[in-house]
């Protein structure tokens, strides 16, 4: 994209995130106002939501990068030291795939808990995440997953007062 003779690239991911936060904030503000415009309802929510929307507008230009700046960016990035308050995601393709795979497995796991039972969900999630992290030996995959399933199901059953739906255990 070209504006005033300069080339810009758009960070669509960041734009989507700002849009998501801004959209969610706007929806929440309207939802709160739809419930009641009483001060007892919107005393904190309304000013905070307006402030958040203002921040979204200020951040919006950061989603557009000048091409010349981007070319200088990698050299600058190297100077940045590790900051645990601002963790960085891995950039290597294999690491990104593993991370994405583990995230997807976690998603399937949490939604499967009530459907297939905690025991089966834990067993398959453990085996899948071990495989994603690099374990290939079938015996270890099965035995370790089984051990994690038995320990966590019986351990948490003894700990928590809520029922845990299981299929086998």
């Amino acid at each position: 994209m070209r504006i005033n003779g300069h080339s810009y690239t758009i960070d669509y991911g960041h734009l989507a995130l700002v849009g998501l936060i801004g959209g969610a904030t706007l929806w929440y503000l309207f939802d709160a106002r739809a419930v009641s415009t009483s001060i007892n309802n919107i005393l904190l929510v309304q000013p905070t939501a307006i402030f958040a929307l203002l921040m979204c507008l200020l951040i919006l230009p950061q989603c557009f990068h000048r091409v010349a700046d981007e070319m200088a960016a990698p050299a600058k990035a190297k100077q940045d030291e590790y900051d645990p308050l601002m963790p960085k995601l891995p950039t290597e393709r294999s690491d990104v795939i593993r991370m994405g795979g583990l995230g997807a497995a976690l998603g399937v796991f949490v939604f499967a808990l009530d459907i297939v039972g905690f025991d089966i969900a834990i067993f398959f999630f453990t085996a899948a995440s071990m495989a994603i992290c690099g374990e290939r030996r079938p015996a270890r995959l099965v035995l370790y997953s089984l051990a994690v399933t038995i320990c966590t199901v019986y351990g948490f059953r003894a700990l928590i007062p809520f029922p845990m739906a299981t299929t086998i255990l």
Binding site: F111, D114, S129, M130, C133, I160
Partner: peptide
């Protein structure tokens, strides 16, 4: 090794959140 500890931590953390709410 991460391949052993990470699945166990994730399972414990997930069940820990179940312990907080009592539902999925």
């Amino acid at each position: 090794r991460t391949r052993y500890i990470l699945p166990a931590i994730l399972v414990i953390a997930t069940l820990g959140t179940y312990a907080v709410t009592g539902e999925t």
